[in-house]
Nucleic acid binder design. Structure first.
Lengths: 190, 190
DNA sequence: GTCTATATCGAGATAGAC
DNA sequence: GTCTATCTCGATATAGAC
């Protein structure tokens, strides 16, 4: 693997584990097995490298989510597939984690991949819910945008609960709870 | 206000804004208008002061939540009151924020107030849901623990979505979505 | 492209005077 | 109790040799 590639992968891991503020250029270089000069040759600095790393993680998340969402037949199956995907809750979300970082939120450049990811994800889910309502699978009053936001929030919040507890369990409970709440939104038999 | 008190309040604000890793003793001292020696006289160091600050924020969150939860008459009213409480979503949760911090999660001392807060909150909500099921307000199959975890997760995840978007809106959508999902869990008329 | 040298600054803390 | 002095280390680069 080339040096530039190793730097991006190292940054991805460290941003995941320690966030933007908690990740130093030196730590990235050490993990990548690259020197100072090497990093500053390939990237302008820490923010530039971080953006490259975050874009890649965002692309990965999107591909994984799309795989779940495209799989099921009904809206409920798709949403459940997304919610119940295997996740290591204690590690958290590579993308969502960045939203809690003050330096990321303060910078247009750094926030952009995060914003784009969640815009896409909630929009994709809202479309699925809207289809479910239109097809008569889900009850007519169900708001697609609000429901989509709640689904994505349960996953992101589940990470918080798991890390607070030091255990996977609260995450699993939260997503199971969300699936059960959604199951009760089926349209009444005509 | 005494110096010790000002240090705790300054730490509370900075931990909220910047997290544990992103908060320096120097920044705390400057905001408190206290010198180096003064801080190290009252507290053993950064972790010690942070624990004091986090305990206070945990106590505050608990009191606020209890106020919402004790207010409503039915389980749905109580849960909705908790979910719909006015919050500045862009600032995030003083307590939940700490769960994303690697140094907090790595330390038994620092994690304890966070864990305790969410244990209490999910337990309190689970009791409310269980009461609602027992009284016939909510459908019999509804799992109290899973539902409680989902409710708390929606709020914590809502903060992530809001900060990612740079807007309050996704937070409001998520909690409204959760309230709507809960409304459909009413037990069918006997 | 990668290396080493150098620079500035802040983090996090200790020591001891007042 | 609070202050200033001092210490060590890492963060975040820039400069210039190889």
């Amino acid at each position: 693997m080339e040096t530039s590639e190793r730097l991006i992968e190292s940054a991805r891991e460290l941003l995941w584990e320690r966030g933007y503020v908690g990740t130093s250029p030196k730590a990235i270089q050490e993990r990548a097995g690259a020197g100072q000069g090497s990093m500053y040759h390939h990237f302008r600095g820490k923010p530039d490298l971080a953006v490259a790393a975050m874009r890649r993680s965002a692309e990965q998340l999107r591909a994984q989510a799309e795989a779940q969402l495209a799989g099921g037949r009904t809206a409920q199956e798709k949403a459940a597939a997304y919610l119940l995907r295997e996740r290591d809750a204690l590690r958290g979300c590579r993308v969502g984690r960045m939203a809690m970082d003050p330096d990321v939120i303060a910078s247009e450049q750094l926030r952009e991949p995060v914003q784009e990811t969640f815009d896409w994800l909630t929009g994709r889910l809202a479309g699925i819910v809207a289809d479910g309502v239109a097809s008569g699978e889900l009850r007519p009053g169900l708001d697609p945008d609000d429901t989509a936001a709640a689904i994505v929030a349960v996953v992101q919040g589940g990470y918080v609960l798991a890390r607070a507890a030091g255990s996977q369990e609260p995450f699993d409970r939260a997503v199971r709870g969300a699936v059960a709440l959604l199951a009760a939104q089926a349209a009444p038999d005509a």
